[in-house]
Amino acid sequence: MAERFRAGGKLVVFGNGGPSTDAQHVAVEFVHPVIMGKRALPALSLTSDVATLTGVAARAGFAEAFAHQIRCLGEPSDIALGLSADGECENVLRALEVAREAGMLTVALAGGDGGTIAATGAADHVLIARSADPLVVKEVHVTTYHLLWELTHVFLERAGVA
């Protein structure tokens, strides 16, 4: 992720239901860091544009809600991060597929056994919180993306090392 940011890429984040709020949390984490002195990094939640979300869903179906946005807004140097509590969200899966075709780095935070998202290898990096309880999955995901943010900055600052 640090390499992508260094190359001028941005982060696009998406998820359904509770994880849609996590997508927005991840975006604000990168854009406006809580720790003073950390640089702002470009990150965008695909759940915030309700006009596009409902427009695409009504026209092409909800499965295309995120994939459409990635097709139009995504660039090869970007990072796509999808969240799914059971790993079965079709629109998250579709978005990861489109992102990979576009040359983006793909990351998934899943729960349960990782579901179809883990089984199909849809993402370059799949981090699984192995619980059937979506609330426990969420709690682990929050810590996971807090750490992902911190570690991204660690590797950004140690540009010569990794």
Binding site: G18, Q24, H25, V28, E29, K138
Partner: peptide, 19 residues
């Protein structure tokens, strides 16, 4: 505000559309 706004939305949605 900020990250806490996403928690507020998550909390509301948990009650409105629970698992």
């Amino acid at each position: 505000n900020g990250g806490s706004s996403t928690d507020a939305q998550d909390l509301a949605s948990l009650f409105l559309n629970p698992p």
